[in-house]
């Protein structure tokens, strides 16, 4: 029996190493190839097979793309849209998630169910409605016209993350504060929020990345660089005759690398947010 266990452990170890290497390559290599291509000269890409060792690296194309008239404004728009949408979503969902986990009022459970149910709401199903609505209120092709629906779309995920963190806060702390005469809003602002900072971080990161990457609503609600965001910019980023891959890969890396680095460094919060509630502790 002992020998079988040793053999089993050995097989397990080999399988693990092979599996980890293989899957890591599958998830990282395609993106790294694009990063390398974005640093290579346009001529290098035309070699067959292409030479993707960027020696010397061509950083100047990053500046050229980032400050181009075609792509540059979309970066600014994305920053504005994602920041405002994230802050607004948090400001709105903090009291709502708090109330839903704490107040004994009628319809509390159905309200929570409604919020969570909206996570499955397919944005592509209502692009016609949003187009009409945003045109009607005069916000077509403006950044506020994107921020408003983005807030609505991200309320569900934010409530989901926040309620799961609120549930983990011990009730006794709040009861003590209530006995001392603290108002509900006071308890929320002074006691609960400092305790759920990780939850706020998780919700903020997830909402920011969601809105930064959102495509179809932005495609429908914008038409010029007044409000077009980065994903729409990349989708329409074409050379004059055919796709200019050196510039396209550069734009794609500019759009994604900051978010990827941010997400990898702050993965602890993102993972806890994404899987919150999936596992009850």
């Amino acid at each position: 029996m002992r020998r079988i266990n040793l053999l089993e452990q050995k097989i397990r170890k080999i399988l693990t190493v092979v599996g980890v290497l293989f899957t890591s390559c599958f998830f990282v290599a395609p993106y790294m190839v694009m990063v390398l291509a974005s640093l290579s000269s346009a001529d290098q890409l035309l070699l067959t097979p292409p030479n993707l060792l960027p020696i010397p690296p061509h950083f100047e194309r990053y500046l050229a793309v980032a400050f181009s008239n075609e792509f540059g404004p979309t970066i600014i728009n994305s920053l504005i849209v994602s920041s405002f949408a994230t802050v607004t979503t948090l400001v709105i969902t903090l009291p709502a998630s708090y109330g839903v986990t704490r107040f004994r009022i009628k319809g509390r459970t159905s309200l929570l169910t409604l919020f969570i149910a909206l996570m499955a709401f397919p944005s592509v199903g209502i692009i016609g409605y949003l187009y009409d609505l945003i045109r009607a209120i005069g916000l077509f092709d403006t950044t506020p016209g994107l921020i408003l629906p983005y807030v609505a779309f991200n309320i569900a995920v934010s409530v989901w993350v926040l309620t799961n963190f609120f549930k983990a806060v011990p009730i006794e702390i709040e009861e003590a504060a209530a006995l001392d005469g603290c108002s509900k809003m006071g308890i929320l602002l002074r006691i609960v929020i400092p305790l759920i900072k990780p939850g706020l971080m998780a919700a903020a990161l997830i909402v920011f990345i969601n809105t930064w990457n959102e495509f179809v609503v932005a495609l429908v609600l914008t038409i010029t660089n007044r409000a077009r965001t980065i994903p729409v910019g990349i989708a329409s980023f074409q050379g004059i005759h055919e796709t200019n891959w050196s510039e396209t890969t550069t734009a794609a890396v500019i759009a994604s690398l900051p978010v990827v680095v941010l997400a990898i460094f702050l993965r602890r919060w993102i993972i806890s947010g994404l899987t919150a509630g999936a596992v009850k502790k």
Binding site: A37, A252, L262
Partner: peptide, 21 residues
């Protein structure tokens, strides 16, 4: 940590990346 990479990349970027490959 590696697993976070494709999650954080925009669909549009992922599409461009595979078209390029």
């Amino acid at each position: 940590a590696i697993m976070v990479l494709p999650w954080a990349v925009a669909n549009v970027v992922a599409g461009r990346q595979w078209s390029f490959l």
